[in-house]
C-alpha cells in the first residue's frame, strides 16, 4: 500500500493508497484504484474518474464539514463508501456528477449521530444526452443520542439512465439489544456491539485493519 500526503492535485494510477491531506485537494483517477482515507480535516475534495477507470474508496469521517465532488466521464465504475461518526454538528455533501456514458456509481454512507446533528446531502446529477449510466445511492443513519438528517437528491437530464436511492434513519433495534442481553451482555455493551456492526458494514476488511480498535466510542 502507498501512503501519500496530498497537498493539492494528485494523479493516481492503478494501486492501493492510504491518503492524508494537508489542504483541500483534487484527485485524478486512472486505472483500477483503491483509496483509504482516515479522518482528514479538509472541507473540499474533488475526484475525477478518467475514462475506463475504477475507484473503490473507503473514508472514515469523524467530525468535519465536507463537500465531495465526484466527476465521472465515460465507462467508469465508482464505489464510494463514507462512514461518518459525529461528535460535533456537521454537514456532508456528496455531489456525484455523471458527465458521460456507461458509468456505474454506487455511493454508500453510514452515519452514526452521537449526541450531535449530522446533515447528509447526497446529490446525483446525470448530464443530458448521456446513455447507459447506472447510479445508486444508499444512505443510512442511526440516531444514537444525536440526529441524522438525510437529503437524497437525484437529478436526471436524460431518460436513458437507471438511478435510485435508499435512505434509512432509525435507532438501534430493541429486539437485537435484548437478544444480546439474553446471552448475558450488559445493555451498554450490547449497544456498543451493534453500533460497531453498523459502522463495520461500510468498511472493507483491509480498512478495518488499518483503523483497528473500537470505532463507536
Amino acid at each position: 500500500m502507498n501512503k501519500i500526503l496530498v497537498s493539492d492535485i494528485i494523479d493516481l494510477e492503478s494501486g492501493t493508497y492510504l491518503l492524508e491531506f494537508t489542504n483541500n485537494a483534487t484527485i485524478n483517477i486512472k486505472g483500477n484504484v483503491i483509496i483509504y482515507i482516515n479522518n482528514s480535516k479538509i472541507s473540499n475534495l474533488t475526484i475525477n474518474l478518467k475514462d475506463k477507470s475504477i475507484l473503490n474508496l473507503y473514508k472514515l469521517n469523524l467530525n468535519n464539514n465536507l463537500v465531495v465532488d465526484i466527476n465521472q466521464f465515460n465507462n467508469t465504475k465508482l464505489s464510494y463508501n463514507e462512514t461518518l461518526i459525529n461528535k460535533l454538528d456537521n454537514e456532508l455533501i456528496i455531489n456525484n456528477n455523471i458527465l458521460g456514458n456507461n458509468n456505474n456509481s454506487n455511493i454508500s454512507v453510514r452515519c452514526l449521530a452521537n449526541n450531535k446533528k449530522s446533515i447528509i446531502k447526497g446529490n446525483i446529477f446525470i448530464k443530458d444526452n448521456t446513455l447507459g449510466n447506472d447510479a445508486k445511492e444508499e444512505i443510512r443513519g442511526i440516531n444514537n443520542g444525536g440526529l441524522v438528517q438525510i437529503e437524497p437528491n437525484i437529478i436526471c437530464h436524460t431518460n436513458e439512465v437507471s438511478a435510485n436511492h435508499l435512505t434509512t434513519i432509525g435507532y438501534l433495534n430493541k429486539m437485537e439489544i435484548n437478544y444480546l442481553r439474553s446471552k448475558g451482555i450488559t445493555k451498554n455493551n450490547a449497544k456498543k456491539i451493534l453500533l460497531n456492526a453498523f459502522i463495520k458494514s461500510n468498511l472493507s476488511e483491509e480498512f478495518r485493519e488499518i483503523l483497528g480498535g473500537d470505532l463507536s466510542v
Binding site: 437478544y179 444480546l180 442481553r181 439474553s182 448475558g184 450488559t186 451493534l194 460497531n196 456492526a197 453498523f198
Partner: peptide, 29 residues
C-alpha cells in the same frame, strides 16, 4: 434485568431466533 438473569444461569431458546447482521457468534460469545 435480562442480562443479570442470564449471567445467573437462565437461558432461553426461542422458536424463531433473530438474525443480527455484522455481529459474529464468536464476537458475541
Amino acid at each position: 434485568s435480562i442480562d443479570e438473569r442470564s449471567r445467573l444461569g437462565i437461558y432461553l431458546i426461542n422458536q424463531s431466533p433473530i438474525e443480527i447482521e455484522g455481529v459474529t457468534n464468536a464476537e458475541m460469545l
